[in-house]
Every structure is written in C-alpha cells, then in structure tokens.
Design a protein around this nucleic acid. Structure first.
Length: 588
RNA sequence: CGGGGCGUAGCUCAGUUUGGUAGAGCGCCUGGUUUGGGACCAGGAAGUCGUCAGUUCGAAUCUGGCCGCCCCGACCA
C-alpha cells in the first residue's frame, strides 16, 4: 500500500474527548473515528487490524471444530420474550418497531437466536455435539459507553455456542474452547489471565473470563504470581484466618488475650474509621466496621474488619438475593436509631453477618449505636452474635487458596468469557433432542464470547510507548513499514524492488512514498506502530544497504543496516520467527 | 438515573466575568527556500459560535427549553 494514496489521517493532537490510551492512539494514528457515543467507524488501518485479529480467532475456532455461520443483527422480539430477556435486558436493549408496529431489537448477544436454530435443526443425539460461531456486530445501549473501542454500543464480537447431550460432554466442549482461547490470546501477544468469574446470573455452572491485564482495566482480579490461580475479585473468597493471623494482627496490643469489659468512648464528630482510629491512636484493623445493607425487603448489618471492604457479590450470594445495596442514611437511622458512622453490632436487634476476619478479632472497636460514641473491647461472640461468612474483598498479600503464596491484585479488561450454560435456554425454549432410549432431553449448552473490537483496543492498551502503538505481528495491519527518504531515482527504484520482492513472498507493506520531511514520516511510522520499519535513503543505499528497525526498539536512532538484496527474505524470516514464537507460546 | 464539566474553523483552545458583531496555534491551499526525527518565509481559504426561543438598539457573551458529548458514580452477556 502506498501511503500517498491511502486514507491514514494521523493527528498531532488527540481529540479532547479521548481519555484512554488506546482511544487516543487509535484516533491519532488514523485507525478509527467516532460517529456517536460508543459508535465508531473503522478506517482502513483500523479495519486491517480488526481483520487480522478476526482471522486469528477464526483460525483457532475452525481448528477447534467450531463451524462459522452468521445470525442476523436485527431480531424479532419473540425469542427474547420467550427467554424472558425482552424485559430483563431493560434499557440496554436497542428496541425498534417495523412499519406494522411489530417489536424488534438489535442483538446484544445471540443465545436465543442460536437456541431457536438448534431446536429446529437438532433432533437426535446422533447429531451431537455441535459447535457454531459467528463474528457479528452486537448492540447494547450501555448506560455509559467509554474508552473508545473498549466499551462501545456497537461492537464486533465472536460468539460461539456448543450443544451437547450431557453435562460431561458439555464440559469437554468447554475445555476445547478454553484451549482455543488460550491459543488465541497467546498468538495475539496478550498479557492476560484466565480467571474464575461470576456466572451465577446466567445460570451457568462453570465459567472463565479472559482478562487482559492493564492499569486502565475496569475489573479487578486477584491473581497468584506463583501459580495459575486467578479469580475476579467479585467472586474470590478471602482466606480463612488462621490463629496465627489473628495474633499477628493483634501483635501491637498488649494483653490482647484477656479482653476487658466493653467500654463506651466519646468520639464526638468522628464518624469514620479513619477519623476514630486517628483519634484513638489505633489502627483500622482493630475496628469492627458495621454497614447496613438492603437485600430485597430485608435490612442486614454486615461487620467486617476496619481495614477490609465488603464484597457485595459474595454478600448477595450469602443472602440468596440478586443484589444488595448500602442503605441510605435515613434507613440506617430508622433501623438502628443512630446515624451512619456510629452504628455497631452490640445491641442491634436485626440480622447480623460477620466476616471471618472480623469474627477472629479477640476484641475490637465499633460504633455504639449512639451519636458521637464508640465502644472499645467489643468481643465478637461475647458482646454480640452474628452469622459468620466470607464477606470481604480479597486484598494484595492475602494467601493464594491454591498454593498459599501472596496474591496480587491486577486490573483487567474482560476480553473473552466462556460459560457452560447448561439447560437454562434450552429448557425455556424447549430445545430438546432424543437420546438413545428415545427420551426427550434438553440440549446442554455452552457459550463463548470474544470482543473482537475490544481486543483491538486492549492490544493497544498493552502494546504502546510514548511515540505510539507497538503492534504485535499477529495483529499489525501490515508487518512492514517502508520509509522512502527523498525521491531520487536510486531510492525510488530500491523501494520498488523491495515492494516487488515482498509482494512475491506474500508480505504486505505500507510504503511511505509521501514527499514530506523525514521527521514527519518517522513520527507517523512510530504512531502507526507497524512491527518493522525499513528506511530506504541515499545515505545507506550507496553501500547497497537499507535500514531495519523493529518498532519495539526504543532508541529512535538505532537501526540496523542490511543489504537491500535479500532484505525481503530477511523480513520474511523475522515475521515467520515472530509468528511461530507467539503461536508456540504456552499452548498447554 | 445521581453528581460534575463541556459544546467557538478539520484538531487543540482563547474570547463569555463586564453584551458592541470572532481570534491563536496546529492542519489545509498557493509561491519560494528547505530536506535523516513533527522546517522557515510570504500570501490565502475556512466558523449557522450545538439548537430553539426570550431579553436588548445590539447576544458567542445574559435568561429559559431542548439536543449532543465527556468524566465520576450507579449499572453492565
């Protein structure tokens, strides 16, 4: 591709509405343009990158035995009404009416559509298993689109669905998808973790998220650096405190073994753990932090250690409800007779849950249920009764549940998610097959998604430097960027020669033949981020040489002189080596 | 949906407080000088000031409605 003919509108300055690094760089390098909130056009380079990623995904899906099909993006309401999601999806669903007033919507995901296909076309156990996928735009009216391609209202997704005769076979389908996903993320050059996730809402029995690790990620992941354990912090269970932990946290307290009687302390105007701990010159870990949550109709008090945070997902599960919310000040006052900041479990009449770590404290400080007062020497079990459970968020340094080493907390972008769905949809939609005995059984389903357009942005989040994008080979729009220096006959001829030779090897190159100053062209090359740059100019061409610089080389001046003759073959070898490396990495 | 902010040239922004008829840098066009890391000189084109209504002799500027966008939160297969 000749740059002089290409649509690559690079920008010196980023549009002010772009905040995330991938959004800024994809805009500046001329890959995408915004059309509306969460809606983007892909310009030629952006589409190239998208297609590269798509092809990696497609290749691995095919390899894993999944068959590609294409479902519609616009869907009649009936199927979602059948599954109950017409209502459940709420405002997130883009709804429309046809000229006759019939209800339609844009597909946010395609479980219903595929289940409908399956119930029509699969009749016998002899036809199982099946695994179908598509690459299709999805539409969700997100409450808050953000980060450019990271969370759009229109986005490209690869979604696959498996159909099996039994739960065991479904697990084997799931396993083959898990391996395919690992290969996909490895080949694309991601730093990622496969993490256990909250699959409860989908009615699934097993699920894993593929989280791309970046600082800007929206999700928090508890992961072990010594073993493969990783879980979304939403579901990660904090380790049960051992006795040694309890004494360790009390190490600074003299005579902690013989707790005194409860003592009331005036703490005027100090309604936060921070304020009270400063006031009493003690640490937050010695507090029994009490919070009132609403869980459906019920109000419950939750007690965690002062330095811990409540894991609301685990709390909701413990209580058997979909979600919990912190009660507002009015409700707290009504329930406890005390303002927020001074509530505590001692003397509280309602239901109390306590986190294991808080319960393990030999004594603690908590609100007195009375404005401007706290209680000291409160002993869980002696001064109040509560149901103990694991209710706190895991923190860095907590013990890994698998190997016992310290956990780290990472931020991640959920780029892929695989589920065993079970019979949730097949039962609702009567998608059944006949087994060997002639009995009707619901299909056991799995679903497997990868956000393709999100992968583009995620890669940029992970692979960039101060000058621009640094594409891994597998996703780069072109592997080679040729910078033509000047327009002398010799240079023009050398560029044409290399172009021809690369073409013969099936290697596409972006050739910057624009009549611009070198600095401009180098800046654009860095911004665009193709893996290898070849500079062809009079200077080295006199010796029959061109200059080669990998984009990963941080020093802008560090280029390696290689002979023009054989340069194409040399590049071919570099590309092949890099491609093999990434595809061979960790394919367990 | 709650809180905050923004909307002026293709992009980044000034001008709004105190109303007087629109500016800069970058980009773009023309000519010239330049040419190995975002050159320089000269000239030029380009804006319904988001939109509608109101106040006023006069509105980018004041008032109200609407629309759009961004950020934080809530929410999120």
């Amino acid at each position: 591709m000749r740059y002089s003919k290409a649509l690559i509108p690079t920008l010196k300055e980023a549009p002010s509405d772009a905040i995330s690094i991938s959004h800024i760089l994809l805009m500046r390098a001329g890959y995408i343009r915004r059309i509306g909130a969460g809606i983007y056009s892909f310009l030629p380079l952006g589409l190239k990158a998208l297609r590269k990623i798509e092809e990696v995904v497609r290749g691995e899906m095919n390899q894993a035995g999944s068959q590609e099909l294409l479902l519609p993006a616009i869907l009649p309401a009936e199927l979602f009404k059948e599954s109950g999601r017409w209502d459940k999806f709420g405002d997130t669903l883009f709804r429309l009416k046809d000229r006759k007033g019939g209800d339609y919507h844009l597909g946010p995901t395609h479980e219903e559509t595929i289940t409908d296909l399956a119930r029509r076309e699969i009749h016998s156990y002899r036809e199982l298993p099946q695994n179908w996928y598509q690459v299709q735009n999805k539409y969700r009216d997100e409450p808050r689109p953000r980060g450019g391609l990271l969370r759009g209202r229109e986005f490209l997704m690869k979604d696959a669905y498996s159909f099996d005769a039994s739960e065991e076979e479904a697990l084997s389908s799931y396993e083959s998808m898990r391996l395919a996903y690992r290969r996909i993320f490895d080949r694309l050059g991601f730093r990622y973790r496969m993490v256990g996730a909250d699959s409860g809402a989908m009615g699934g029995s097993k699920s894993a998220e593929f989280q791309v690790l970046v600082q800007s990620g929206e999700d928090f992941i508890a992961a072990c650096d010594s073993c493969e354990y990783a879980e979304n912090i939403e579901v990660a269970a904090a380790p049960r405190p051992s006795t040694s932990d309890a004494t360790a946290s009390d190490a600074t307290a003299p005579d902690a073994q013989t707790p005194e009687a409860v003592e009331e302390i005036a703490t005027p105007g100090r309604g936060s753990i921070e304020a009270v701990s400063k006031f009493l010159k003690t640490e937050p870990a010695k507090f029994l932090k009490s919070l009132i949550y609403t869980a459906g109709e019920e109000l419950v008090m939750v007690v965690v250690r002062g330095d811990h945070e409540v894991n609301e997902i685990r709390l909701a599960r413990e209580l058997g409800v979909d979600e919990v919310h912190l009660a507002n000040g009015k409700a707290v006052k009504e329930a406890t007779g005390s303002p927020i900041g001074f509530i505590g479990p001692v003397g509280y009449k309602g239901r109390i849950l306590i986190d294991h770590d808080a319960a393990a404290l030999s004594e603690g400080i908590c609100g007195a249920l009375k404005n401007d007062y706290h209680l000291a020497h409160v002993v869980p079990g002696r001064d109040f009764q509560a149901e103990a459970a694991s209710l706190r968020l895991v923190t860095a340094g907590d013990a890994c549940p698998k190997c016992g080493k310290g956990l780290s907390i990472y931020r991640g972008i959920e780029a892929g998610h695989i589920f065993v769905l079970g019979t949730h949809y097949s039962e609702k939609m009567n998608a059944v097959y006949l087994d060997e005995a002639g009995e009707k059984r619901p299909l056991v389903m799995g679903c497997y998604g990868i956000g393709i357009s999100r992968l583009v942005a995620s890669l940029v989040e992970q692979h960039h430097d101060d000058s621009g994008i640094v594409w891994p080979v597998a996703a780069a729009p072109y592997p080679v960027h040729i910078t033509q220096m000047g327009t002398s006959d010799a240079v023009v001829a050398a560029v044409a020669k290399l172009e021809r030779e690369l073409e013969e090897l099936g290697i596409e190159a972006l050739i910057d033949d624009r009549d611009l100053r070198p600095g401009v062209k180098f800046k654009d090359a860095d911004l665009i981020g193709l893996p290898w740059r070849i500079t062809i100019g009079e200077r080295s061409l006199k010796e029959g040489q061109v200059e080669l610089k990998p984009r990963t080389e941080p020093n802008p001046k560090a280029a390696q002189a290689i002979p023009l003759d054989g340069a194409a073959r040399h590049l071919a070898e570099l590309i092949a080596a890099a491609t093999n490396l990434s595809s061979l990495a960790k394919t367990n």
